Amino acid sequence: MIKTAEEFKIRAYTKVELACLYNPHMTIPGALRTLARWIAGNSQLTAELSVLEYNHRNRIYTPRQVKVIVDHLGEP
């Protein structure tokens, strides 16, 4: 069987990497804004990320933060 896309792995991702995985056809700034809006618009996701010491100024998501994001938004 031929795989056309790699399987998504829970690991540390930079904001740019994760945003571009969720929005591959957007520019980097557009993908970052869109992901930030999705996170900010989901109060339950925001609450869970705050417990994990998420700060919107951080440039890297930890594996635990990525898992929470994927749990709420689905796999990219």
Rank of each mutant, 00 (worst) to 15 (best):
I2M: 06
K3N: 10
K3S: 12
T4A: 01
A5D: 09
A5S: 13
E6A: 11
E6R: 13
E6H: 09
E6D: 11
E7Y: 06
F8K: 05
K9Q: 11
I10Y: 04
I10K: 01
R11L: 07
R11W: 02
R11S: 05
Y13S: 04
T14D: 06
K15W: 00
V16C: 05
V16M: 08
E17L: 04
L18K: 01
L18Y: 01
L18C: 02
L18P: 00
L18V: 02
A19I: 02
A19M: 10
L21A: 14
L21C: 10
L21I: 10
L21E: 09
Y22L: 06
Y22A: 03
N23C: 10
N23M: 06
H25S: 09
M26G: 04
T27Y: 01
T27H: 02
I28P: 03
G30P: 01
G30S: 12
A31D: 00
A31P: 00
L32D: 01
L32V: 11
R33S: 13
R33I: 05
R33K: 14
T34H: 06
T34W: 00
L35M: 12
L35F: 00
L35T: 00
A36I: 01
A36S: 15
A36F: 07
R37N: 15
R37H: 11
R37S: 15
R37A: 14
W38G: 02
A40S: 14
G41L: 05
G41E: 05
N42E: 14
Q44W: 08
L45G: 00
L45F: 07
L45T: 02
L45M: 11
T46R: 10
A47W: 03
A47G: 13
E48Q: 12
L49N: 01
L49M: 06
V51M: 03
V51C: 03
V51A: 07
E53T: 12
Y54I: 05
Y54G: 06
Y54F: 15
Y54S: 12
Y54K: 12
N55K: 13
H56I: 11
R57M: 08
R59L: 10
I60Q: 12
I60G: 06
I60L: 13
Y61T: 05
T62S: 15
T62G: 07
T62V: 07
R64K: 15
R64M: 13
K67F: 09
K67E: 15
V68G: 01
V68S: 09
I69G: 00
I69K: 00
V70M: 08
D71Q: 14
L73H: 03
G74T: 07
E75G: 03
E75W: 04
E75M: 09
E75N: 09
P76A: 10
